[in-house]
Every structure is written in C-alpha cells, then in structure tokens.
C-alpha cells in the first residue's frame, strides 16, 4: 500500500480549497449536533457515546 497520490499539476486554489472548506463545515456540523447540542432527545440518544468520546456532556 505505497501508492502515492498527487493531484495533476497545480490545481487552482479555488478548486481545492472550496470543496475542502465545505466538507470541513459538514464534518464540524455533524460533530456539533451529535456531540454538543443539548436538546433533550439528542442528549439522551447520544449520551453514552458523548461520555465515551470525552465530550463535555452534562
């Protein structure tokens, strides 16, 4: 498993940064909702995972 990946030549900044920023925003959104929002139903459902993951829980 030593295949190296490189994008062909220099991609423009826009074509690499924008998608990365969007994926980053989605990822952070998921962690915020699943790990940190305190809505009661969400808290109860995610309770054990929040503790086991080390998120501040209650």
């Amino acid at each position: 498993m030593t295949i190296l990946v490189q994008t062909s030549a220099k991609s423009t900044a826009k074509s690499t940064v924008l998608p990365a920023v969007m994926a980053l925003a989605i990822g952070l959104g998921i962690i915020f909702v699943a790990g940190h929002v305190q809505a009661s139903a969400l808290h109860d459902a995610a309770h054990d995972v929040r503790h086991a993951t080390g998120f501040p829980c209650h």
Binding site: A23, G27, G29, I30, I31, T53
Partner: peptide, 13 residues
C-alpha cells in the same frame, strides 16, 4: 455518525 464527521474533516485536510 461522529466518526463520519471526523472522517470528513480529516479527508478535507
């Protein structure tokens, strides 16, 4: 779900 969030962040970087 949480690890999908982590995965998206990691692959973005």
């Amino acid at each position: 779900l949480i690890y999908v969030g982590y995965g998206l962040i990691l692959v973005a970087f």
